[in-house]
Structure formats: C-alpha cells, structure tokens
C-alpha cells in the first residue's frame, strides 16, 4: 500500500497499459484500380495493415505537482503514451485513469492554418470552454506570452514552425489545466521562448497541476521536471527522479 499511503493525490494512473495500433504501411501491390478490385474479390482486408505494439505493459502513478519528463529514442512510444493519457488512443489492454481532462500539446497539431493568429486564439479558447468575457480578459496576455507581436493578424499558414508552436502553447496554457501533456512543443521555439515556457510549466506545477513533457533535450527535462520516465521500445525502462533517469539514459546512449 505504499502508493496509497504516501499522502499525495494521484492525477494519472497507468495500469498495465498496452497500446497496439493499426497503421496502413504504404501501398500493397501496385496500388492500381485493378489490384484494389482483385483484393475486394478475394475478400482480403487492406493488404498492408500492420499492427504496431507501441506501448508495452506500462505502469506508473503521477501526482499533483509532478512534472514528468518522458525520454527515450525516436519511436520508443513517448508520443503514443501521451496520446493514451489524453484519451485519444484506446488502450489494447490496461487502463489509464485521469483526474480532470488532460490537454495534449504537440508540434504537429496545427490549428486552423488559413485563419489569422488572433482568430485562432479566440477559437482555441472557445473550444476549451472559456467564455467570451474570459477570453477578452486573457487575450492580451496570450498574445503577449506567444511573442508573435504584429504577426498576430496574419494567417497561421504564414508562420514559421516556431511561431506556430509558440502560439499554440500560449493558447493551450491560457486555461489552467489539471494535466498538461507537452509533446516536443518547446523544441522549435527560440531560447527566450523556452525560458518563458519553462516558467509557465513551473507555474502550472505550483497550481497543483501535473505536466508531462516529452523532450529530446535532456537539459530541459533536468530544468523543469522533478521526475522522468524512460521508455525504450515501448517498455518502461526506468521511473525515478529526473537526475537519476537522465543519468541512466545518457550512460545507455553513450553505449
């Protein structure tokens, strides 16, 4: 009963979590109408659906005020794990329990690209359930924080990836989230923005929220997180303090 007795309030519990998803791996055959027709006649499923076992039997408990860095090589299941916590991927087996609604913030999650930045701010906030008055009140703060400046009334399709990431982070962090999942969103920002967003993450922790941060920058993990998970090939290799896990990971990475 070690966990239950520790007194801290858990916000995310992953219980024997397995995630398998189906991907369409390229085109089977020549991809012509004739091959598609033959496939239908033979009653085959789409030929190249492959199953990917992305997360294997992961267990952990996250508490209020935790900032958890998730590290590991590319393709080790980090982003998949975050999506599962956000409730966007169904677990093949096992469960994720969360208190409150987690928000996932990723780099490739563009918003409405043909709309201007300020419209994106308003729409994003409305979608998160903020009221018009609330948005008006926070609008300047969001734009300020994003550091987009005069470009705010240009369509988002004209933004650089860094600018878009900043704006999205600013929007998503405008609301106080119980659980915020950050997927590499800070990687494209410049140094100044990184400092700001790290401060924001710390604020969020102070408000008793829980932050998950996927990052390849171990410094960021060390600076902002108190705890880290190391995923390797979908398996949770190590769960411990940020220093401990980062040290083990660097040792492993160096060979």
């Amino acid at each position: 009963m070690a966990v239950a007795d520790s007194g801290a309030e858990p916000t995310v519990i992953a219980d024997h979590l397995d995630i398998i998803y189906k991907v369409i791996a390229g085109q089977g055959g020549k991809g012509t109408a004739a091959t598609a027709f033959r496939r239908i006649l033979k009653r085959q499923d789409r030929p190249t659906i492959r199953e990917v076992h992305a997360v294997k039997d992961v267990n952990f408990v996250a508490y209020k005020g935790d900032a958890i860095g998730v590290i590991g090589r590319n393709g080790s299941g980090k982003s998949t794990l975050l999506r599962a916590i956000a409730g966007l991927l169904p677990p093949a087996s096992g469960v994720v329990y969360t208190g409150g609604q987690p928000s996932l913030l990723g780099v490739n999650a563009a918003m409405m690209n043909d709309l201007t930045g300020d419209r994106n701010v308003v729409l994003g906030c409305l979608a998160m359930g903020m009221s018009a008055a609330e948005i008006q009140q926070r609008y300047d703060e969001i734009v300020e924080f994003s550091g987009i400046g005069e470009f705010i009334d240009l369509p988002m399709s004209t933004y650089s990836s860094g600018m878009a990431a900043r704006l999205k982070f600013a929007i998503a962090s405008a609301k106080t989230h119980d659980i915020l999942l950050v997927d590499e969103a800070l990687a494209t920002g410049d140094a100044e923005f990184r400092v700001r967003s790290e401060r924001k993450i710390r604020d969020l922790r102070d408000q008793a929220g829980t932050v998950f941060l996927v990052s390849h920058s171990l410094d960021v993990v060390l600076d902002t997180c108190n705890r880290a998970l190391w995923l390797d090939g979908g398996v949770l290799r190590l769960d411990g303090t940020a220093e401990e896990v980062v040290a083990a990971y660097t040792k492993f990475a160096r060979g």
Partner: peptide
C-alpha cells in the same frame, strides 16, 4: 515523495476510485 513508487504494491483501480479518477 512522488518519484518511483512501487506501483505494484497497490491496486490501481481502487486507488483511482479513492481519488475520483
């Protein structure tokens, strides 16, 4: 107190229910 607790020691479902997750 939060890091690396042995989660196997407790029943996650019960824990989740206790804290309303």
């Amino acid at each position: 107190p939060t890091a690396a607790e042995p989660t196997g020691a407790t029943d996650p479902a019960a824990l989740a229910e206790r804290y309303g997750l």
